[in-house]
């Protein structure tokens, strides 16, 4: 474990190429018009995969101290809690409040 991993050009360019390909893919899928809810699932799936590539290979988490990965994962977990508990309210209102 060391924070000083030196990435090769091949790795960096490969990751950038994959991100470029996935960007084109997500735009392409958008024009196919997959029926809901699969369109949002596919779009978010591609975005999560892209974000994972950036985090692992550009932000070096793949080679880094695992504690830094734990920090990132904990922030995502708390974000999920925020969304989940908010939706427990907003999804189950008899009617949306006027002005909202």
């Amino acid at each position: 474990m060391s924070g000083h991993h030196i990435s090769t050009d091949k790795t960096l360019l490969g990751v950038a190429g994959a991100l470029l390909f996935l960007t084109i893919l997500t735009v392409g899928v958008h024009y196919i018009h997959i029926p809901s809810p699969w369109n949002i699932i596919v779009a978010m799936g591609i975005a999560i995969f892209k974000a994972t590539l950036v985090a692992m290979f550009f932000m070096n988490l793949y080679w880094d101290e695992q504690f830094n990965s734990l920090l990132l994962i904990s922030s995502i977990a708390f974000f999920a809690l925020l969304v989940a508990f908010t939706l427990l309210d907003t999804l189950f209102r008899p009617e949306i409040m006027p002005g909202f």
């Binding site: 924070g3 920090l71 925020l82 969304v83």
Partner: peptide
């Protein structure tokens, strides 16, 4: 670097409110 990651956690939750 760990300090920066902790700052990034607060950034994710800062944007997280808007994403929610």
């Amino acid at each position: 670097k760990m300090g920066m990651w902790i700052f990034l956690v607060t950034e994710i939750l800062f944007f997280g409110g808007l994403f929610a």
